[in-house]
């Protein structure tokens, strides 16, 4: 296991409620989501179905619906819900003093993620 490295990627307020923002990394894009009750999640910005940019989907509860073909993924686990099977990678995230800190260490040494954004 790699060591946890918290990266400050911005303020929670910069992400709209029930919306998402994108963090660009050398390995591709990570999507930050914010729920109606101000919880935040980080997922790779790439749908397990056909690579749709999850950051462009509609957020509801702790789920996001992919904009391309309406798969619904759990923000908590990255798992596809319902009959669909697949999983988007998730990243540890915490909010401190209104700032979003993400642990992207899992990306280190990974190949480039999805090209969407």
């Amino acid at each position: 296991m790699t060591e946890t490295i918290w990266t400050d990627v911005g303020a929670l307020d910069q992400v709209p409620r029930l919306g998402a923002r994108v963090v660009r990394t050398p390995q591709g894009c990570v999507a930050l989501f914010r729920t109606v009750d101000d919880r935040a999640f980080a997922l790779e910005d790439r749908c397990p179905h056909k690579g749709g940019p999850l950051s462009q989907g509609i957020v509801h509860g702790a789920n996001v619906t992919c904009p391309l073909h309406n798969w619904v993924l759990s923000l908590e686990t990255g798992e596809a819900q319902g009959a669909d099977a697949g999983r988007a990678a998730t990243f540890p995230l915490k909010v401190e003093a209104g700032r979003i800190l993400v642990d992207l260490s899992a990306l280190a040494g990974q190949p480039v993620l999805g090209k969407a954004s």
């Binding site: 990627v9 910069q14 963090v23 660009r24 480039v112 090209k115």
Partner: peptide
């Protein structure tokens, strides 16, 4: 405006790839 820009860009080096 928030729709059109990333919240953070840790990948200026990745610019060429986009």
């Amino acid at each position: 405006a928030h729709e059109f820009v990333p919240i953070a860009d840790l990948a200026l080096a990745a610019e060429g790839r986009r």
